[in-house]
Design a protein around this nucleic acid. Structure first.
Lengths: 214, 214
DNA sequence: GCGTATACTAACCAACCAGTTGGTTATAAC
DNA sequence: GTTATAACCAACTGGTTGGTTAGTATACGC
């Protein structure tokens, strides 16, 4: 005979946090449509209704998870101190940072992937997402400008395209490593291949941004 | 009062084809988990059981759709006649081809995306997928070798990394255009931005593969 | 013109799943 | 202590969904 669960100590902050953590993991693993609200509630060790109490519905929960993931990325990016580096090296440091962030937050790329499959229908309704990402392009823009003053970065770089290039070279590799490894019969996930990938990315970006020699 | 549907003329080839077409569209739109077998059957204007008759289950149908999509890509790629071009230009022609293929087959990238969210569980069981992709790296490898003989391509290029770079710069941009457009408040889908993206990709790859001047 | 493989269909089913109902109990403010 | 608020829960619901059952119709070989 199972005795009823003892009444739990109340801790609203922690319960909310546990729901968001469990949701990030499960949404990341299964995608929005594949994820089950019951699984999230069970993993978070709270009742399903508490989840609905805090977040309203599955879509709103997903939106929260996405916003929090972006926030973590942009906060860490903004905390980088790149002022001590020459601008061209600082841009390569952003390549490293982006790669490391993807590697250490596997849910992030999977969450974004699911959101894009749904044509960003959650982000489009988010009122916080613009503010969260406000600093990102400014960082890139000012590094490009400084690099031009320092004569190490070419004059016609578009910060948006630079940001997309850096993101895409790492994001695609990690997100698609399962199909790529299968199709080309090589384990892209190995330590060795991951190190090699970072070198290739630095090389590609480095050659692209460098000022042409006279 | 609805009269019963008149018995349909038999046409096994066409029915199969209609199921695959409808499945490619719907799986592409909704992803594997978001897609509904009933919707595919209705769109293909056949009975659901006919779909099960031909393909067994939802997973097997998805596998067929994926294999067919890869096959289309690789067949068109192999049909490209690049022998008339200098090797460095031929590689840039592959950049153009890949981009154009993604643009004209929007389901392809979405299908692959869904498959990667599921960690390639369908492709991993496919017995046809290796054969379908067999020529791809050979094309890249031989172009690199020829470029080295022609002294226009650097000596240390890895065909796998080159292929991944070309794929990622276009794939990521198109697959993530919804979140990117939202986050950075600019319409990446516009004709102008698409043209610009292709130019950037050609520039990035071009500078990366070029032999260093003495 | 008969037998059989296969193209094709309608109706059904059990499991699943997002969200709800209808509460109880801890906490804090007064 | 009384009361308001919010944390927390078990059990339920109704629509959905992948897959099945039990068959009829057609084409084709012989």
């Amino acid at each position: 005979m199972k005795s009823p669960a003892p009444p739990r100590k109340r801790n609203p902050g922690e319960s909310r946090q546990r729901i968001l953590d469990a949701a990030a993991r499960h949404f990341g693993e299964a995608g929005f449509d594949g994820a089950r609200v019951d699984v999230i509630a069970r993993t978070a060790r709270i009742n399903k209704q508490l989840l609905y109490h805090y977040f309203g519905n599955k879509d709103a929960l997903f939106t929260h998870v996405l916003e929090r993931a972006y926030q973590q990325l942009r906060e860490q990016e903004s905390a980088l101190n790149l002022d001590g580096l020459p601008a061209d090296e600082a841009i390569l440091a952003l390549v490293n940072f982006t790669w490391k962030f993807y590697l250490s937050h596997p849910d992030f790329i999977r969450l974004l992937n699911s959101e894009n499959q749904m044509q960003a229908r959650h982000l489009k309704r988010s009122r916080r997402i613009a503010a969260i990402n406000a600093q990102h392009l400014k960082i890139y823009r000012s590094l490009i400008a400084r690099g031009q003053r320092e004569k190490t970065v070419r004059g016609d770089l578009d910060p948006l395209q630079l940001s997309i290039n850096i993101a895409s070279l790492g994001f695609f590799y990690l997100m698609n490593r399962h199909t790529l490894s299968t199709v080309f019969k090589s384990d892209l996930n190995s330590e060795r291949m991951q190190r090699k990938r970072l070198e290739v990315m630095r090389d590609v970006i480095g050659r692209w941004i460098r000022a042409d020699r006279k």
